[in-house]
């Protein structure tokens, strides 16, 4: 049952007339669900702001959350859920912050005749829409956080370090999937150009398992580096990995492989005559 323009204006009046009681009741309920993790003053400020937002939307004739007159309210709700998501509140705690408004309004409704009830049901649908919107934003913000963290992890786990003049190393740590392999390749090649290093050592000590796909990624990187005029050495091959490589029939061709990073560095230095 949708909110009509008349009901909207009636509720706008109600929200204005009973504002203090509404804010107090609403704050009480939210504080209860958050169990003291936000200060009461802070909550009161938030609920007062939201009440103002709801009032402005209803007074502006909004009967649906998608309307132009509710734009301000939508912005407020997304700001609230965004800050809740970043502070680590759960989805329920965030949604309750909006749902509690219904109970607060119910407490302020005088009388219990049929028209009042109808009004309330319509209003309740409006608040539900608002809470759903909040929930959507919450999920959106959370997804954004996760994506950011994944990206940070990607950056953290693929450093390219300079070992010697003209020698760079890529210590690979963790599973090498296509996305990471791509990042590693781009980083390494860019570093080769920037530093003008003709030698690169790919150290796979931290790679837990090497299958044909991982080997394929490493080989591609080596071939790309060769195309650019740099030579790659693969180091840090653990005994089990060596066994797997042979068992899978992976051919590294004429690419130099060494057991440890130290061996690889010694090999490169001897090649360059130092």
């Amino acid at each position: 049952m949708a909110l009509g323009p008349e009901e909207a204006s009636r509720f706008a009046v109600l929200l204005e007339e009973h504002q203090e009681a509404l804010v107090a009741a609403w704050t009480d309920r939210v504080a209860q669900s958050l169990r003291g993790r936000l200060s009461r003053v802070e909550l009161e400020r938030q609920t007062a702001e939201l009440r103002k937002g709801f009032h402005a939307a209803l007074a502006g004739g909004a009967t649906d959350l998608d309307q132009e007159s509710a734009a301000e309210l939508r912005a407020q709700l997304s700001e609230l859920s965004g800050s809740r998501a970043r502070q680590g509140f759960s989805a329920t705690e965030t949604a309750v912050s909006v749902f509690a408004f219904k109970e607060a309004v119910l407490g302020e409704l005088e009388g219990s005749d049929a028209s009042n009830l109808r009004d309330y049901v319509a209003f309740s649908a409006f608040v539900d829409a608002a809470a759903l919107f909040t929930f959507d934003t919450y999920v959106h913000v959370r997804e954004g956080l996760i994506a950011d963290q994944a990206e940070q992890l990607l950056e953290l786990s693929t450093p390219v370090v300079k070992l010697w003049e003209g020698v760079v190393a890529v210590p690979l740590v963790g599973t090498l999937d296509s996305a990471r392999a791509q990042v590693v390749m781009e980083r390494l090649l860019q570093t080769l150009v920037d530093t003008g290093s003709p030698y690169a050592i790919i150290d796979i000590t931290g790679v837990p398992a090497v299958d044909t796909q991982v080997a394929q990624h490493i080989l591609k990187t080596v071939v790309a580096a060769r195309l650019m005029g740099a030579d790659c050495i693969i180091s840090g091959i653990r005994p089990q990995i060596a066994q797997t490589i042979v068992a899978l029939g992976i051919e590294f061709g004429d690419i130099a492989t060494k057991a440890s990073l130290a061996d690889a560095l010694r090999f490169v230095l001897r090649k360059t005559g130092r």
Partner: peptide, 19 residues
């Protein structure tokens, strides 16, 4: 270089250098 590798072209017979 990445594009060439993806295309499977390894330019055999060509010597390369970084700069």
């Amino acid at each position: 270089a990445i594009t060439l590798v993806e295309l499977g072209l390894s330019l055999p017979g060509i010597r390369t250098a970084l700069n």
